[in-house]
Design a protein around this nucleic acid. Structure first.
Length: 403
DNA sequence: CTAGGGTTAG
């Protein structure tokens, strides 16, 4: 006897389609459900509403919301929050707030998530006073801020360089009966690292531990990046290898970070060793790993090895991207193998990889240094007149050759 | 089924 799929099965299918950007197919499945009299539930519609907001905008989603009601399915607060989020993402925060006010007339009350969504919209618009006001209102409206509210504020403030205010928010968290977590601390840790205040970053790490919040892999990746950038690659390697003892497992990003640090410190051999180490630990290198390695090899004039890395990427079924092509193009040009560079450039275009401004800069400079001034000049003028690149990206030495 | 980390290449 054939078994009819139930709503849960359909929802899983629809979720998968929406996740892959195939909203149209997902909507077709909805029609299929209605035809088969397998009634879509509130979850079905909520998933579809989220995808519709992303693909066609919230106005289209509003129509689906009406259709949902017409089919006798009552939206819940999660459904409405998805729509509120859609409105905010189109930059219409005030409309989102108006929409929130209408919810009680549909028998639904906003919750803390609703306010957090609007708060995010206000922070995105840098409407700090409004954000503060809204936060004050939340408690009165029976939707007290939670740790997500505070974490969002901290992250936005840090991104704007407002580290002191962010620090104050962090200190406020316990007063609202909430417990800070790693998402509360990490943006601040990142801010200190960005300011190159490594001692402050380290002290802050101690602070979070002393307060019972253990750094997670994102905290450590932040530190690894900062250590590499401040020329302390050896310390980064040491930390990478101590992560296990600290209850953390290094991930792909951790290795990519340190591999990059090593190549930039001229330690390509150690970078390659680290690549082997990550593979032996069962971590699959990705396009970033190989681009990093390829740039490192090119920097040492080991183009053949870099091209081998390029081949490895293709063997793995990954399409080489612009960054990887640029690394090898630069290597070839530096070695005055401009013709090979142009061959590779044709191959790049043939394989549908879009060049960017760096690509053209590398090629024009390559042509200029090889004495092909006329060709370089023509390519530069052509690209500038088509608005694909700006002249000032060419370095002074090359400009002198061209003038 | 909804909200939170500007963790990695150029």
């Amino acid at each position: 006897m054939p078994v009819e799929p139930d709503a849960y099965t359909y929802n899983t299918l629809i979720r998968g389609l929406c996740g892959r950007g195939r909203t149209a197919n997902a909507l077709a499945v909805l029609d299929d459900m209605l035809r088969r009299r397998c009634l879509p539930d509130v979850v079905t519609y909520t998933i579809l509403l989220e995808a519709t907001c992303k693909r066609s905008g919230y106005k289209q989603a509003m129509k689906l919301l009406d259709e949902m009601r017409a089919k006798g399915c009552t939206p819940d607060i999660v459904t409405y929050n998805v729509v509120v989020n859609g409105i905010c993402q189109e930059g219409r925060v005030d409309d989102a707030m108006e929409f929130l006010k209408t919810l009680p007339s549909y028998g639904c009350e906003p919750n803390t998530v609703s306010y957090n969504i609007v708060l995010k919209g206000l922070c995105t618009a840098e409407r700090w006073e409004d954000a503060e006001e809204l936060m004050a209102e939340m408690g009165q409206k029976g939707c007290p801020p939670n740790v997500v509210t505070f974490n969002m504020l901290i992250s936005f403030l840090c991104r704007k360089g407002l580290v002191e205010p962010a620090m104050e928010v962090l200190e406020q968290i316990p007063k609202y009966g909430c417990t800070p977590n790693s998402l509360s601390y990490n943006p601040l840790l990142h801010a200190f690292c960005k300011q190159k205040k490594m001692d402050k970053a380290m002290a802050f790490l101690e602070l979070m531990v002393s307060r019972g919040c253990y750094p997670d892999i994102v905290s450590y990746n932040t530190l690894l990046t900062a250590l590499c950038r401040s020329g302390e690659v050896d310390v980064a390697i040491e930390l990478l290898h101590q992560l296990k003892d600290k209850g953390c497992t290094p991930v792909l990003i951790s290795y990519n970070t340190v591999i990059d640090g090593l190549t930039k410190a001229g330690k390509t051999k150690e970078a390659l060793e680290l690549l082997n180490e990550m593979v032996s630990k069962g971590l699959q290198p990705d396009i970033i790993t190989y681009s990093t390695i390829a740039s490192g090899l090119c920097r040492e004039d080991r183009i053949e090895d870099a091209i081998r890395a390029f081949g490895k990427v293709q063997d793995m079924g990954i399409r080489p991207n612009t960054v990887l092509y640029n690394a090898i193009l630069l290597g070839l040009c530096k070695r005055r193998e401009t013709h090979s560079a142009i061959d590779l450039f044709s191959y790049m275009i043939g394989n549908g990889c879009m060049p960017n401004e760096s690509t053209y800069t590398i090629l024009i400079e390559g042509l200029a240094y090889e004495g092909l001034i006329k060709e370089a000049r023509e390519l530069l003028d052509e690209l500038c007149s088509r608005g694909v690149m700006r002249k000032r990206l060419i370095n002074k030495g090359a400009i002198r050759l061209l003038d």
